[in-house]
Nucleic acid binder design. Structure first.
Lengths: 133, 133
DNA sequence: CAGCATCCTATGCGATACTG
DNA sequence: CAGTATCGCATAGGATGCTG
């Protein structure tokens, strides 16, 4: 890690790079959490409707149970989703998106749509790059 | 890796999860590349104006030379930025955003702005979560 | 100036087994 | 059903040294 420098960062913010990950660079502090392998996928699912734990497992069968738990916890911690436990036997737990989560998903879904729309152009760019290299 | 299952994924796309990273899930294929530690930061810099290699180093002094090179190559390969070599002595290289990069940065910058605007709410949510745990 | 090659570490993530 | 606890690996990323 470098010395105590300050650099212009995301959206014109200055960030103390000696403490890069500790939350003083606001944009990175937020982006870090939603850039995990499963975060956006789960956000997209829960943007549709609430889901129970097992439902999410079946919806995304290739997520490990460990990462499902962990990702849900992180999303909950950041305030994007709520977790409600129903004291049945055996217990059931429902996850639902919060208003904050929905307000994030608004611009986020635009990026996802862009990715879908432009996947062809990107694949083409890769072919061109790899051919000329 | 799991068996050959297909699940509904991003933006309603189906993805063969047995080959998850190989590009058959369009959204993930695109998002993977821009979710690196430095990608969005460099995109934001180059959205302002073209930069030379050394300028980017000085702008983001805490990026390692290795990651600057690598991230720029990935962004170039996906078609977001162009690389122009000026045959001076010693050589100088300029990076500039392409139209594709600019069209990506449009929705992407909305997410970055959202992150900046809502950083306080997220930090508060974390405090609440950690207190109740 | 703008890189490439090498080594090394941190950690994100998967696999497996166990529990209230 | 909805988790927790361990272990292990693959890879993202940092540090350092060399080059056209």
């Amino acid at each position: 890690m470098n010395a105590n420098v300050r650099v212009p960062q995301f959206a014109g913010q200055e960030c103390d790079t000696s403490n890069w990950d500790a939350g003083n660079c606001p944009v990175r502090d937020v982006i870090n959490q939603i850039s995990g392998k499963w975060s956006t996928l789960l956000l997209q699912a829960l943007a549709q409707r609430p889901y129970r734990f097992g439902e999410l497992r079946r919806l995304v069968p290739d997520i490990s149970q460990r990462m499902l738990t962990q990702t849900l916890r992180e999303l909950q911690r950041d305030g994007y989703i709520d977790r409600e436990v129903f004291p049945t036997k055996p217990p059931s737990v429902e996850y639902r998106m919060t208003d904050l989560g929905r307000s994030l998903f608004l611009p986020l879904s635009q990026v996802l749509s862009w990715a879908e729309d432009n996947h062809g152009a990107i694949k083409a760019a890769r072919v061109r790059f790899d051919a000329s290299a």
